[in-house]
C-alpha cells in the first residue's frame, strides 16, 4: 500500500511539475511574442528612421516620404482627447463613487458603462461621423456657419467636418468608458476612514472629495489615464471612419485643420504591396512604439512612486 501511495505521490508531483512548465511556457510565449514583434519590426524599419523621415511629409516616392503630418496630427488629436476625456472620466467617477446612492439606476448606469467599454471602436467612429462631422445633418457642409477667421487658432465651423477637433472628440468617446472605470477603481481604493475623518471635522461632501478623496486617488487615476491615452494614440479605425484622410501634406494649424495620425499612416503604408512602403510602415511603427514605451514607463514609474509610501 505504501508503494502504491508512493507511486501515486510521485505521479502527482510529476503532474505538478508539468503544470508549472506549462504555465511557464504560456508566460514565455507572451514575452517571446513581444521580442519577436519588436525585433522583426526593428530589422525591417531601422534603416528608414532618420531626421528626414520625421521631418517630411508623405510622398509617392518611398525615399522621400516622412511622417511629419501624422506625427503632429497624433499630437493634436491626443491632446484634445486628453483634455476632454480625462476630466469627464474623473467627473463621472466622482459622481458614481462619491455622490450616487446604491440604486437600480446606478446599477444600470454602471452596466451601461461596462457595455460601452466593450463597443468596438469602429462603432464609435460611426457615431462620431454622424454627431461631430455632420451634426446629424442639421446643416449641410455647404452652408456651415463659423466663428473666427480660418487663419486664427480658435477658428471653428459647424459642423466640424473631418477636423482635428472631431478626431480628438472621437477618441475621447472611445476612451471615456476606460477612463471612468479606471477612476472609479481609484476612488474605491481610497480608505473610507479618510473620508470619515474629514467629514467628522465638519467638511462638506465636496470638500471631502476635493481635498481628501481626489488627492488620494490621483496617482492611480493618472496611471489609468496614461494607459487610456496609450490606447487612444494607437486607435486607427474610428478616425478612418470619420475622416479617411490618408495623405495629408501639412501639419494642423487650428482645430478645424485636416489631419492624419500615425496609425492611419501605418495602415496606409502597410496596405500597399510594395516592399519599400512596408519598410516605411515599420519605421513609423518604431516611432509609435517609442512613444508607447515612454507612456508605459511613465505609468510604471508613477505606480512605483505610488507604492512607496505604503511600504515604509
Amino acid at each position: 500500500m505504501m508503494s502504491g501511495r508512493a507511486i501515486a505521490t510521485s505521479r502527482r508531483l510529476l503532474k505538478n511539475r508539468l503544470f508549472l512548465y506549462g504555465c511557464l511556457a504560456g508566460t514565455s510565449i507572451a514575452i517571446l511574442v513581444l521580442c519577436v514583434l519588436m525585433i522583426s519590426i526593428a530589422i525591417e524599419g531601422w534603416s528608414s528612421v532618420s531626421w528626414h523621415f520625421l521631418d517630411s511629409f508623405a510622398s509617392r516616392k518611398p525615399a522621400q516620404a516622412g511622417i511629419k503630418a501624422p506625427l503632429m496630427g497624433s499630437v493634436w488629436v491626443c491632446v484634445i482627447c486628453a483634455l476632454v476625456a480625462i476630466p469627464m472620466g474623473i467627473g463621472t467617477a466622482i459622481y458614481l463613487e462619491e455622490f450616487a446612492k446604491h440604486s437600480r439606476i446606478k446599477r444600470l448606469i454602471q452596466l451601461n458603462i461596462s457595455n460601452l467599454s466593450g463597443v468596438p471602436s469602429i462603432v464609435y467612429g460611426i457615431l462620431a461621423l454622424a454627431a461631430f462631422v455632420r451634426f446629424f445633418g442639421i446643416s449641410s457642409s455647404d452652408d456651415h456657419w463659423s466663428i473666427g477667421d480660418s487663419e486664427s487658432f480658435f477658428y471653428l465651423h459647424f459642423p466640424f467636418g473631418p477636423s482635428v477637433l472631431a478626431g480628438g472628440l472621437t477618441l475621447a468617446l472611445v476612451i471615456l468608458p476606460i477612463m471612468i472605470i479606471a477612476s472609479q477603481e481609484a476612488f474605491r481604493s481610497v480608505p473610507q476612514s479618510l473620508r470619515q475623518g474629514a467629514l467628522a471635522l465638519g467638511s462638506t461632501q465636496w470638500q471631502v472629495i476635493w481635498r481628501v478623496s481626489l488627492p488620494a486617488a490621483l496617482p492611480t487615476i493618472m496611471t489609468g489615464a496614461i494607459l487610456a491615452m496609450s490606447r487612444a494614440i494607437g486607435e486607427a479605425a474610428p478616425l478612418l471612419v470619420i475622416g479617411g484622410f490618408l495623405l495629408v501634406f501639412h501639419t494642423p494649424t487650428n482645430l478645424m485643420s485636416d489631419f492624419t495620425v500615425l496609425p492611419l499612416q501605418i495602415f496606409n503604408w502597410a496596405g500597399r504591396p510594395q516592399g519599400e512602403f512596408h519598410k516605411l510602415a515599420a519605421a513609423a511603427i518604431l516611432v509609435q512604439l517609442v512613444v508607447l514605451l515612454v507612456f508605459n514607463s511613465a505609468a510604471i514609474i508613477l505606480r512605483h512612486k505610488l507604492q512607496k509610501p505604503l511600504q515604509s
Partner: peptide
C-alpha cells in the same frame, strides 16, 4: 516585470499587429 510586459503588449496599436500578421 511580467505585468509590465503585458501592459506594453496591451498598448501596442492594433495596426501594428496587423502589419506583423501580414509581414511576419
Amino acid at each position: 516585470v511580467l505585468k509590465a510586459v503585458l501592459e506594453i503588449l496591451a498598448g501596442v496599436p492594433t495596426v501594428v499587429y496587423g502589419f506583423f500578421a501580414l509581414t511576419f
